[in-house]
Design a binder for these strands. Structure first.
Lengths: 129, 129
DNA sequence: CTATCTGTTATATATTAAGTATAACAATAA
DNA sequence: TTATTGTTATACTTAATATATAACAGATAG
């Protein structure tokens, strides 16, 4: 299954869809040009209204992850390398700072964070489903 | 100023208060046993209702960052080391995974993340205000 | 040409989260 | 005694989230 939704989560459904697709791109399950299910199809698959899926798609498009072609479909978009990096660096600061503050407060060594990140990179770049 | 609130942020006010205090502990501005302002005082300082501050305090207490003593006040709490680490590892997984997925999708090398984290650690442990 | 499918727009509604406002309680501390 | 503390209760407003239903209009496949 490409997407699994936790309806009891504190995280909004449209955000779970968004994160799931970003994760799909990162893991190599979704590649440049790949079509995404229509808002109706994906909504039916995961038991969610089409507007909720549409909200996730609009967000993903605004972030440059996908391209919505009206009346044709929605597709994964690779995007420009430099612009991608800039996009990431702009938005990762706050959540990362919060995370590091928590780690320092909990007396967790920076090496532990490095190790976790390396492990996640390896999992994603290994490209196993 | 210990706390600065952005009323236009998408992040809830009580969460900004929570993060600000966690950051205060991480930076060494707040230490074990230090008293926090009363819910009314802090609310008045930052222009927010006392219930909003109380919500942040309750959250911080549930996470083990502070100790609320009824009718006496609220104080920073160091907590147990092992329990602290466990608490962090339980809760950091999801947001970190999302962050790393975005980084991989944006073709940002893991070394960049390592560097950012080291920089944040240095800033916090340097203990300059 | 005819259906079907596409994202899109519009309207309406329900639920929950977030935040404020005001008042009162009861023990602590000055 | 008096002010301060966290707490509880009630009421209210606003915004975010999610669903439901319908229609639009071009693209696409039969």
């Amino acid at each position: 299954m490409l997407l699994s939704i936790d309806f009891g989560s504190d995280q909004p459904i449209y955000m779970q869809i968004r994160n799931g697709i970003v994760n799909g791109i990162a893991s190599g399950n979704l590649n440049d040009g790949d079509p995404l299910p229509s808002v109706r199809t994906l909504g039916a698959e995961i038991g969610v209204n089409l507007h909720t899926v549409n909200k996730a798609y609009q967000l993903l498009q605004s972030e440059g992850f996908i391209e919505i072609q009206r009346r044709r479909g929605t597709f994964i978009k690779a995007g420009d390398a430099a612009q991608n990096a800039a996009e990431f660096l702009e938005n990762c600061g706050d959540p990362l700072k919060t995370l590091v503050s928590e780690a320092v407060t909990r007396r967790v060594d920076r090496a532990v964070l490095h190790q976790m990140i390396d492990h996640m990179y390896d999992e994603l770049e290994g490209n196993e489903s």
